[in-house]
Design a protein around this nucleic acid. Structure first.
Lengths: 321, 321
DNA sequence: TTGAAAGCGTTACCAC
DNA sequence: GTGGTAACGCTTTCAA
């Protein structure tokens, strides 16, 4: 017990000299306290898990995800909490190690796949028990252990639409990957709703690329452009937009004169392209950090202060539209 | 015990009917096995920790790091191991939560900062006890619980130098961030060694940007270009190279005609720029995956099959040099 | 085929 | 100030 008191810094409970002796032994023996034993005793793991559904093995490569996870991780580290990260294919979601065994005080998740599948995963996560934050989804839930955190992709899509309407538009193509993400659906929805209400005559098409990979997108768009050239291409993300720009270039189109191009999630890519991208800025890092705050509040015994948080986004004008 | 046998799938030890009953109760009670208790009993956590030293709070944003961590995480997930991820400022390295408490079966690390500091952190990590893999460092160690895994940045820098020597060169600038990374040092070393041996008359300067941030790099390079224009700029990474391209453009320089530019770690950025970047391809994902293999081998009781693994890199020619 | 007992390393509680 | 005792949930061992 005295050793335990020293380790945990209960300085007033231990005589100075005893403390010294204990500290020396700790240094000599290279002792580190066993986290499992501590967790077992306190029934508190000081650890949060995040499960990320994605078909891309390099799931942390997505700039939105990497920023969100960084923000969450840093906030938790500051409070001496650990973050377990696991990527998982959407079909295998429920068998993720993190979910099968109870080793985290709270869970976070990013889902993808068909809406029904995402809903099923959402329900599964809720039933697991521990406090849960799901990012970038728009489900309803009245469970008190669940909170949703997402950015306002609907408004983002709408803002892009309004921006594009400054030029005369007859046709728009929305390019997105086959894989379903709630955020992408919302972007398209926001875009279409403004276009429809402003002008019935604009032709809006959706173009699916097999994956988010550069080649797939470039090929799909190039093929499309061969048959007809829309007035604008709205890409679901900036990296798609980067591939779209190349497709336009290879078809001899000038952006933005012949065709406008926009992205989404302005992190870095928009700066590198020529012209720079008109895009929508995403507060991904802050969302991760905020989720950490919500969770810690909840773990302190309070209830979630918000069950649904929507982060605003902002249009950022580049040269591409 | 019977319950335990059911949970662990020791089917032959339990009568079918008993198993059914247990499974029903598990479903009804929403039971998940407690990982801490299991770890304590088995003295095995089924978890690996990775500590990443970085001054950038969004430490997972770096494309090399995000790919490496994804590769490691996926490999571990496949074996039902968990990955704890923590970013930490180099000054606070030793106080990282993951390191203070023993909660992982093995550790991984990516270091940065002045060489002496990195060495100190390396020694600290070794003394912790559990099997350790350090990425992107070139230290020596004969401890049997340590392995080093890095890519051949020396050869990468040399390859770039040889490529650049195809044009007549009088002066080269190597642009890098203030923050020290072993990989960056190696790239510079490889570059300089070839330049020196091939031609004594080439002037090689190093230009330090305050951070890796786009604006910092662009400003630093633009200012430099105002006083003189070298024949080539070798950037420490692709994202620096992206900023360098903008600086060149804003100074009215044509790349590659007036000046050559190269990057490093060809993941995505090189595709987006105009012209595309001449860069060096990095096997980051594979390095993470491979580290996972090494660790699991080691945790199975064998010793590290290799204490120092060097991954080859390859030059990828773009339009910028 | 089932289950009782012991012990993994820690901390809350309490007696000294 | 110090340290004995019990208990956290699990698995190994062994007896029933």
């Amino acid at each position: 017990m005295t050793v335990s008191n020293v380790v945990r810094g209960k300085a007033d409970l231990v005589k100075l000299e005893t403390r010294r002796r204990v500290e020396q032994s700790i240094a000599r023996l290279n002792y580190r306290p066993n986290l499992s034993a501590r967790s077992l005793r306190l029934s508190e793991n000081r650890s949060v898990g995040i499960v990320i559904a994605d078909t891309d093995p390099a799931f942390l490569t997505d700039p939105f995800i990497s920023r969100l996870v960084s923000g969450l991780s840093n906030y938790l580290s500051g409070l001496d909490y650990t973050l377990d990260v696991q990527g998982v294919a959407p079909e295998r979601f429920e068998s993720a190690t993190i979910l099968k065994k109870a080793g985290n005080d709270a869970l976070c998740a990013i889902l993808c796949g068909p809406r029904e599948l995402r809903k099923a995963h959402f329900d599964y996560l809720q039933k697991l028990g521990p406090p849960l934050i799901v990012f970038q989804e728009v489900f309803q839930s009245r469970a008190d252990n669940v909170a949703l955190v997402h950015q306002d992709d609907l408004a983002g899509g709408a803002a892009l639409a309004r921006h594009l309407l400054k030029r005369k538009l007859r046709s728009i193509v929305f390019v997105r990957p086959m894989l379903d993400w709630c955020a992408v659906e919302q972007r398209e929805k926001g875009l279409r709703s403004v276009l429809k209400s402003e002008s019935k005559s604009i032709d809006v098409k959706t173009l699916l690329a097999a994956t988010e990979g550069f080649e797939d997108v470039q090929r799909t768009v190039t093929e499309y452009l061969r048959s007809r050239v829309p007035d604008a291409i709205v890409a679901a993300t900036d990296s798609l937009a980067g591939a779209v720009l190349h497709a336009c270039e290879s078809c001899g189109l000038n952006v933005p004169k012949d065709i406008a191009v926009t992205g989404f999630n302005g992190f870095d890519v928009w700066r590198y392209t020529r012209p720079t991208l008109t895009t929508v800025m995403s507060p991904a890092y802050e969302m991760g950090r905020y989720a950490g705050e919500l969770l810690m509040q909840r773990l302190r015994g309070e209830s979630f202060s918000r069950h649904n948080t929507i982060f605003p986004v902002s249009l950022r004008e580049g040269g591409s539209a």
